[in-house]
Simulated scan of single mutants.
Amino acid sequence: MTSLTFLGAAGTVTGSKFLVERGGHRILVDCGLFQGDARWRRRNWDPFPVNPASLSAVVLTHAHLDHCGYLPSLVREGFHGPVICTPGTAEVAAIVLRDAAHLQVEDALHAREGGYSRHDPPLPLFDAAAAERAIGLFRPSVGRLELPGDTTVTLYRAGHILGSAFAVLDQDGRRLLVSGDLGRQEHPLLLPPELPPAVETILVESTYGDRRHQPLDHARLARLISATAARGGVVLMPAFAIDRTAVLLHELTGLAHDRLIPRLPV
């Protein structure tokens, strides 16, 4: 008998962790940090609900911090199995975890210097050494892979960010699909998501499930940039470093090439 337990991304959209148990074997799909309000961030410090050493493997769908950022803490608490992911996710997640470790240490230092932490001394959730131990467990995979507990996992292209995938776990012919975050069909830089195989159960993200994505209004973006540049102003565009910034740079390059905006320093 197989059981599925939500250890994150329930009641909030971050901290994705899904525990699949069968025949005494435990597989964790995604291992993300809780982000956002303090009440959620504090959960990153809670003891993990099961013994991390009892996990046979972790499967990562992609490299965003809310899907991979708890890995260093999991390793520190005793996990030592393989972390299954695509080659692209292995490369991007290594960058993400090293950057997150740097920020954790920096934030703890600022809290100590500013005296605004309740802890003495304030500590990072994890440091660079913990991040490197987690990265050392990455096992980039393509195709069908055997896992403990008579389970196989296959990663299919999800089109969300570089290397992103949705995972299909097969146990005695019964299949569970975990979507991770899914991309759009018309992404300008990535291939669209692959068609999934037939499955019995689908666990699908719903972060934007209550709305429709609006198409990018190229003409409006060009008008706003051109009008601001004509006034001698600065256009500030907040964007996720992974994927969104690349898409914006691609768009700006195209607008400048088509002479819809002036050539500007970016």
Rank of each mutant, 00 (worst) to 15 (best):
M1Q: 14
L255I: 02
G24Y: 05
V29M: 06
A134N: 08
S3E: 11
S164T: 05
E113S: 06
G115N: 04
L123N: 02
V199S: 10
E91Y: 06
N51A: 15
L224K: 13
L248I: 04
R175S: 03
V266P: 05
F138S: 08
T201N: 11
D30A: 04
P196K: 02
R133A: 11
V58D: 05
L255Y: 11
A158D: 09
L137F: 10
T86I: 04
L203Y: 12
I242C: 02
V234I: 15
S206N: 14
L221H: 11
C68E: 03
A230N: 13
A239M: 03
R26V: 00
V83R: 08
P122I: 01
F48T: 01
P47W: 02
R157N: 14
E251Q: 15
L236P: 03
L195W: 07
L33D: 00
R231S: 10
Q185A: 14
L260Y: 07
R118H: 12
R118M: 06
E146H: 12
D181M: 03
R139L: 13
P238H: 02
A111K: 00
D120W: 09
R231W: 11
L103K: 06
L169Y: 02
R244L: 06
T14K: 08
S226H: 10
R244S: 11
E205S: 11
A134T: 00
T151E: 12
D37V: 06
D217T: 03
G23H: 07
R231V: 00
V59P: 07
L147H: 08
G159K: 09
L55E: 10
A167E: 00
L60T: 00
T5S: 15
P122W: 01
V83E: 06
A9M: 08
I225P: 09
A101G: 07
G81F: 07
H257P: 03
L195M: 10
G15R: 01
L137D: 08
V58R: 06
A9W: 01
D243S: 06
I95A: 12
L190C: 02
A100M: 05
P52A: 13
D120R: 11
L248W: 07
L224W: 11
R174A: 06
P193T: 00
R223E: 15
Q35V: 02
A53I: 01
F79P: 09
F240Y: 07
P265K: 05
T152R: 13
G115S: 03
G11L: 09
T12N: 14
R26C: 04
L147T: 05
L103R: 10
T253F: 13
E77I: 04
L28H: 01
A100V: 01
G209M: 06
R42C: 03
